[in-house]
């Protein structure tokens, strides 16, 4: 065959075949696991956070090609962001960075967002934030 036909675009296929940040972090500061085997997808994201910034991220995924690619891309995007920034992480960021997902696979990117939020929740629970500074009188 001279042409290779693929189910997903080149970026998605690349992240599926060569996933970035695969694995766990032994001393993770926050771990989130979402999804269920019964639904076809489980995503687990581990974060290393220092001084309110995500230093490292790892994932493990039980799921289809786009689920693996979404979690791989999500970990790439989240690294280096502050916790505050990461709390606003959206599945649209994953879709955009992947150059699009088939409509029936959008939920994979949603799951990646949820896994990151779950890991951040875990971090915030373990590291309660100091009380927010009182509003400055104007």
């Amino acid at each position: 065959m001279s042409d290779i036909y693929t189910l997903y675009n080149e970026t998605v296929m690349d992240h599926f075949m060569n996933p970035r940040n695969l694995g766990d972090l032994a001393d993770a500061d926050g771990v989130g696991e979402v999804g269920a085997a019964a639904c076809g997808d489980i995503m687990k994201i581990s974060l290393k956070i220092k001084d309110g910034r995500i230093e490292d991220a790892r994932f493990k995924t039980f799921g289809c090609g786009s689920a693996i690619a979404s979690s791989s891309m999500a970990t790439e995007l989240i690294k280096g962001r502050s916790v505050q920034e990461a709390l606003h992480f959206s599945n649209q960021d994953v879709i955009q960075a992947l150059g699009g997902l088939p409509p029936v696979k959008i939920h994979c990117s949603v799951l990646a967002e949820e896994a990151i939020k779950a890991a951040l929740d875990d971090y915030l629970k373990r590291h309660p934030a100091p009380a927010a500074p009182a509003a400055q009188p104007t």
């Binding site: 076809g40 997808d41 799921g63 289809c64 029936v104």
Partner: peptide, 29 residues
């Protein structure tokens, strides 16, 4: 412990055509 679509895609990329009854492979999920 693994899902069917990933198996199918990797088989395909290695030259083997297979099918799967998993939800990720079906159009209805």
């Amino acid at each position: 412990f693994i899902e069917g679509e990933g198996q199918l895609l990797l088989c395909d990329l290695n030259g083997i055509a297979v099918a799967s009854g998993s939800s990720c492979v079906s159009k209805s999920l």
